[in-house]
Computed example of a mutant assay.
Amino acid sequence: LGTLVRRPASLPPQPHLPAPFDIQWARDWGAAMAEAAAASLAEEPATDLTLKNTAETARWAAALDGISLAPGHVRTARKGSVTEWPGFAEGAWWVQDLAASLPARLLPAKAGDRVLDLCAAPGGKTLQLAARGCAVTALDVSDDRLERVRQNLDRTGLEATLVAADALRWQPDGLFDHILLDAPCSATGIFRRHPDVLHLKGNAGLGPVTLLQAALLRRAVAWLKPGGRLVYATCSLDRREGEAIAERVIAGAPREIIGADELPVGLAPTPEGFVRTLPGQVAGGIDGFFIARLRRLAD
């Protein structure tokens, strides 16, 4: 930092994506998307909140000086510590990007359903499912990672069973009505809020993580009841962690098309029936996510 101050250093007039993302994203998603992604680096993202009670959307949008882009969602430009915002102490909401809330929104789980949230930390999706009255098992690889989930459950007054285990070795005591797998990934989709990820992941190979994603997906499908749904998601803007996995690793479970009427305004399913969120799709920005929904046929 001292060297930069002595130069003195200055920012370029227009932000730009670091290599190789400048070329890769333009190739995969088009020049307009790459330009929107670069422009977003100069903007401080608003904060998205998911509400415990969807029926109170209008109330909390007003109380938090925000807008709602979907039932149970508020986007606010408020600054400062979220712990001091209205509704935090009473557990009325939790911080969760709109894109990150979509996988649970697209899982047709209802009160009383037995649902598995794989790779659950930090717990936003567990909270969404618990708020519906589902019997949620939230699994992650270590108890340390589950501590944040535990804290949010305590704050919101919601309930879930927390399991610290390796999903590649763990065995459930029965089948689940539905499963949500937000798989470990490169996390390049969260670059708006964490631009450092583009520098940390720029030269990282995806071989090991895509093997893990495929293994988790194959394993999870076997834990579904016949007719059950599985939603697979990654917060990555790389096709190898999204579309390629869903196309190659269906594990005997047919794809279930996601409809446009299931998505917030500004988003649309792909021709294949997946969801792909990209910079520039929603006013104010949205994280990059890939989402696919599968269904297990009767044995």
Score class of each variant (00 low, 15 high):
Thr270Ile: 05
Arg218Gly: 15
Asp238His: 13
Leu217Val: 03
Glu256Gln: 12
Cys235Lys: 11
Pro269Thr: 08
Ile258Gln: 12
Ala260Leu: 00
Ala246Asp: 08
Glu247Pro: 04
Pro271Ser: 09
Pro271Lys: 08
Ile250Trp: 13
Ala246Met: 07
Glu262Met: 01
Pro254Phe: 08
Gly242His: 06
Leu294Lys: 08
Val231Lys: 02
Glu262Cys: 01
Arg293Val: 07
Ala253Leu: 15
Leu224Pro: 06
Ile257Ala: 10
Gly242Thr: 10
Leu267Tyr: 03
Val221Gly: 05
Phe290Lys: 09
Phe289Leu: 10
Ile250Glu: 14
Pro226Ala: 00
Gly284Arg: 13
Gly252Asn: 15
Lys225Trp: 02
Asp238Met: 15
Val282Lys: 09
Pro254Lys: 04
Ala253Met: 14
Leu211Phe: 04
Leu278Ala: 02
Ala222Lys: 12
Arg219Gln: 07
Leu217Trp: 04
Pro269Leu: 07
Leu230Cys: 10
Phe289Glu: 08
Leu216Asp: 05
Ala268Gly: 00
Gly285Asn: 14
Arg255Gln: 09
Leu237Met: 15
Pro254Thr: 02
Pro264Phe: 08
Ala251Val: 09
Phe289Cys: 03
Ala268Thr: 07
Leu237His: 08
Pro254Gln: 09
Gly242Val: 05
Ala215Val: 01
Gly280Asn: 07
Ala268Val: 03
Phe274Asn: 08
Gln281Leu: 11
Gly266Phe: 13
Arg240Ser: 13
Val209Gln: 12
Glu262Leu: 02
Ile257Tyr: 05
Leu294Phe: 11
Val265Gly: 12
Leu278Arg: 08
Trp223Asn: 03
Pro208Gln: 12
Val221Thr: 04
Arg255Cys: 06
Ala253Arg: 13
Gly280His: 01
Val282Ile: 14
Asp261His: 09
Thr270Gln: 06
Glu241His: 13
Arg240Glu: 15
Val282Pro: 11
Ala233Met: 05
Arg219Ile: 02
Lys225His: 01
Trp223Ile: 08
Thr234Phe: 02
Glu272Cys: 03
Asp287Leu: 10
Ala244Asn: 06
Phe274Pro: 00
Arg293Asp: 10
Pro226Gln: 00
Leu224Asp: 02
Gly285Phe: 13
Gly207Val: 12
Gly252Pro: 14
Val282Tyr: 10
Tyr232Leu: 02
Ser236Glu: 12
Ala220Thr: 12
Arg219Trp: 07
Arg218Cys: 11
Gln281Met: 10
Ala215Arg: 00
Thr234Arg: 02
Glu247Asp: 13
Gly228Phe: 09
Arg240Asp: 15
Arg229Cys: 10
Ile258Asn: 11
Arg276Phe: 00
Gln281Glu: 07
Gly228Met: 11
Leu212Gly: 01
Arg239Asp: 10
Ala292Trp: 03
Arg239Asn: 14
Ala251Asp: 15
Ala268Arg: 03
Thr210Trp: 08
Val249Tyr: 06
Leu230Glu: 07
Arg218Val: 04
Arg293Asn: 06
Pro208His: 11
Ala215Lys: 00
Pro271Glu: 11
Ala220Glu: 07
Phe290Tyr: 05
Gly252Thr: 13
Leu278Thr: 00
Leu294His: 06
Arg276His: 02
Tyr232Thr: 06
Gly207Asp: 15
Phe290Asp: 04
Arg239Gln: 14
Pro208Tyr: 12
Ile291Pro: 01
Cys235Trp: 12
Ile258Leu: 13
Ala246Cys: 12
Ile291Asp: 05
Ile245Thr: 11
Gly207Thr: 15
Pro271Met: 10
Leu224Gln: 05
Gly259Thr: 00
Thr270Ser: 07
Ala251His: 13
Arg240Tyr: 10
Gln281Cys: 06
Ala222Leu: 14
Val265Ile: 15
Pro279Asn: 13
